[in-house]
Design a protein around this nucleic acid. Sequence first.
DNA 1: ACGTTTTCCGTAAACGTTTACGAGAACACA
DNA 2: TGTGTTCTCGTAAACGTTTACGGAAAACGT
Lengths: 341, 341
Amino acid sequence: MASSIHDLARHLNISIGTVSRALNGRADVNADTRQRVLEAARTLNYSPNQSGRSLRQGATHSIAFMLQPHPGDQQYGEPFFIPFLIGLQAKLAESGLDLIVVMGAPGDYQQERLRRVVETRRADAVVLAWTRREDERIDYLTQAGFPFATLGRSRSGAKSYPSLDLDFEKAGADAVDRLVARGHRRIAAIRPSLNLNFAYLFLDGYRKALRRHGIEVDPELIASGFINEAGGYEVTPHVMRSKDPPTAIIFNNDAMALGGCKALAEMGIRPGHDMAVTVIVDTPLCRYFSPALTAFRPALEPMGQRLAEMLLASIPAFAGPQGPRIMREVWPLELVARDSD
Amino acid sequence: MASSIHDLARHLNISIGTVSRALNGRADVNADTRQRVLEAARTLNYSPNQSGRSLRQGATHSIAFMLQPHPGDQQYGEPFFIPFLIGLQAKLAESGLDLIVVMGAPGDYQQERLRRVVETRRADAVVLAWTRREDERIDYLTQAGFPFATLGRSRSGAKSYPSLDLDFEKAGADAVDRLVARGHRRIAAIRPSLNLNFAYLFLDGYRKALRRHGIEVDPELIASGFINEAGGYEVTPHVMRSKDPPTAIIFNNDAMALGGCKALAEMGIRPGHDMAVTVIVDTPLCRYFSPALTAFRPALEPMGQRLAEMLLASIPAFAGPQGPRIMREVWPLELVARDSD
DNA sequence: ACGTTTTCCGTAAACGTTTACGAGAACACA
DNA sequence: TGTGTTCTCGTAAACGTTTACGGAAAACGT
């Protein structure tokens, strides 16, 4: 079943060195023998043993994406990432790299699993998501000198790694601008914990835009909860208890918006009629909710492709002749106007 | 940075064989030297090179879960699986095994990626999900003699692999029973393509229950679409165009239910008032939708743990002294009555 | 015809482990 | 004291690759 390079060599009566060279497309092998080797490889159903290659080359030819169930998020997952992963995987595959997703246990925020991946050299590089404002994973990886890239910005580490992020700040501001233009002045913001950097950025944009419009930022209109349906459901009533309740709410997450809308419904408040609702990151849920939620849409799949390019360009072993380059990009979110505001 | 077993040996002035035995808890090593080895391993920050181990032992100590964006499901992912993966990962970790999730490109239904994992021996076993009624992946794996387990049943392959599934048949029947008891006789079923085995099972239970109640199965009340929001949105109007429209709809998927409810809303039909809606697999979406959707809930995390046990027990290399055993289990879905029916 | 280059291939070492085997020392027992 | 057993460790091979090195044969140039 498991045919090795030795089997091929014996079968063809040539040395394993030649077989290897033929397989790897090296120049110093006769075109004819190469043909015969490739043919034999096919008939003997040969494919190289990954462990052997890795051991010899010191490279695993795979990139790890760290997936972590967020604490308090046991039940719901991260559908958000799937299109991103599709793009990432497609681009990596072009360079012969495998994408593996490494699951961590909920709670430890990946440190343990990350160490494991790095120390046992299971991957040549890792991709981090949901970066925090201060992110110990980034500190660890830079200190360990392990190649990585992030989906999302962070203040941690020297700026010596490629990163790709969405412009949450501008999206927050755009959302406010739009609502103000439609006559709202009491605008609430509901978001997850601020150490998730995108929540911080969003809130920053929200605040600045309000001030720009001469509207005072009211702490009573800002609430934070778990980044899932339960979180939105739980904290939305908080902002409604203000003496001067909001006429619009911006949710920083689709799942939180779903939970928040349920809380509103229980109070007899209908999104799109009695309350303007905007969501910062669009998903199919926003589109198919009733009413359809106005939301800001990311280009997730192209982002995945782009981050793959950036990661590869930053790794000396993979980079082209121009050598490693570090890049940081921030991509826009596009407004999709629907029925909820 | 990367300290090897040789570094330890040199540092302690003993042979690499002894170091290895000490690290692996073998009996034939002095308690004192073992101490010193473990200590040195800690101070030198040693951890074994995975490729080296794998190559020597012929085992990777990792299990692959094949994750596949479903065709037509580009945008939305599989939040459904996350709790399952949490359970799976937790149990595998107890045996020192890593769980890696392998992404495939959308469309090729995993065959290519699966071959790659198997042939390059990247994992010791794989876990398959979303089994089809006739599943070429299962045929391939059995033929290749590669260990695997499935979440979901299939008719493919000899019954020589462990599998765990939900009792969709009973859930379909229970859903019908409940609706009939509440006075409904025109009950629609909306489900994904039938080669997804769970859809087949669900529809079977639905049909049998209707007949048991003396209700004729009306093909006009059965529709199938993509297993996402768009699918539900698209096909729900079909069943509504019946001369004798349904008074109840059973959705075989939460995302399809979301899309379906949107279609209903656009027709001025309110779930829970003008239409009874039941969902077969419960997710947080069902709970936080307005109105909250009556649904059948699986115990996903325990199922993940259980399948891990079953898989390990079926692999000779991991199984206990009693040797490999094949198991197949079907777990119940629990009704969660809410406001939509 | 002779030196030089090119083409092609075999040899063997190396990557980091694990493990079968055997040997020396210490110990037990008569 | 001699024999057998137990503890502990070193030696070396093996897993499947890749690749530096060198050499034989062929091709080339004058």
